[in-house]
Amino acid sequence: MINVEDLSKHFVLPQSFTAAIRRQKAPRLRAVDGVSFAVEPGKVMGLVGESGCGKSTLARLLVGLETPTQGNVYFGESNALALKKQDRRAFHRRVQMVFQDPYGSLNPQQRIGEIVTRPLIYQRNAASPQEKRKLAITALEEAGLSPADDYLEKFPHQLSGGQRQRVCIARAIVLEPELLIADEPISMLDVSIKWGIIQLLKRLVRERGLAMIYITHDLSSAGSICDTLAVMYLGRIVEHGPTQEVIRNPQHPYTKALLASTPSIDPEFRRKTAQIKGAIPDAVNLSGGCRFHPRCPIAQPVCARVAPQDATQREHGAACHFAFDLEAKQEDLT
């Protein structure tokens, strides 16, 4: 079980000279703001949100590319691993990531064989070069590039986009991680190969029993792979629950709006749902209360004052005052 507790990342923005003199607090961008969730081995959690909602920063936090402002990630019961410097290497071994861009994430100067063995070298793995090579071959074949001998000596630019993404996956699994983070792994690929990559990821999760966080802006692709869904808005998880529950019975108005903008969803539903207005505001000057209230079609005065409860406390939860018994509460307030 991988537990993420109260994880936050605030970026301190550059401040004007006069503001600094007046001892004003520097403005902070709350990219990720108190996020908690748990993923079980063999399960996939989908992390869904528009661009700018903080899902990429969350991913970077989880793989240790950013240092959190606060919060922790725990592996199992006893095995707490702080995202601080000391245990970084061990931490990196347990969490691996597949990036969105299979073109940019492979070093153009390295052969495929090198790319897949490099993680072992960086981990100061004691295996001999031959053993490392064997591990790399296993990983490549498991990622669907077989026979691996055909690929070992090739450079990334000699491969197709789908093949490159498989190399990325091989590089990630060669370290036998416990958590795999896939950041929009298929969004830059041709439609014809997307399905293959999704199937590969599903199989890896099942056979290796690893936990996966699947990051996407597209609810429909998340529906086909994820066991649970977490919807993110402005650095917070606003709704969380089993995938089918969230899609069939969305509770947060933001989730509903996201679903409404997804083409494959029932047109009847789309017509009924009010569209949200305006663009996503920046996460710098947040007013109190619910973060979504300035854009919310059902916002009430209370939403601007009181922050809603945490969505991840329940099996299926939503950070909205009017979740689950929407009609009843709305009548009360009006």
């Binding site: 970077r60 793989v63 240790g64 590319l65 970084r88 290497r89 990196h92 071994r93 969490v95 691996q96 990531m97 990036f99 861009d101 940019g104 994430s105 492979l106 070093n107 153009p108 490099r118 993680p119 070298i121 960086y122 981990q123 990325c168 590089r171 370290l175």
Partner: peptide
């Protein structure tokens, strides 16, 4: 570039990234 971030997530140190 992304491949630098990729290397870092596999545990590469600064020296590893810089020279390899």
């Amino acid at each position: 570039r992304q491949f630098v971030a990729s290397a870092r997530t596999t545990g590469a140190s600064d020296v590893d990234i810089l020279y390899r």
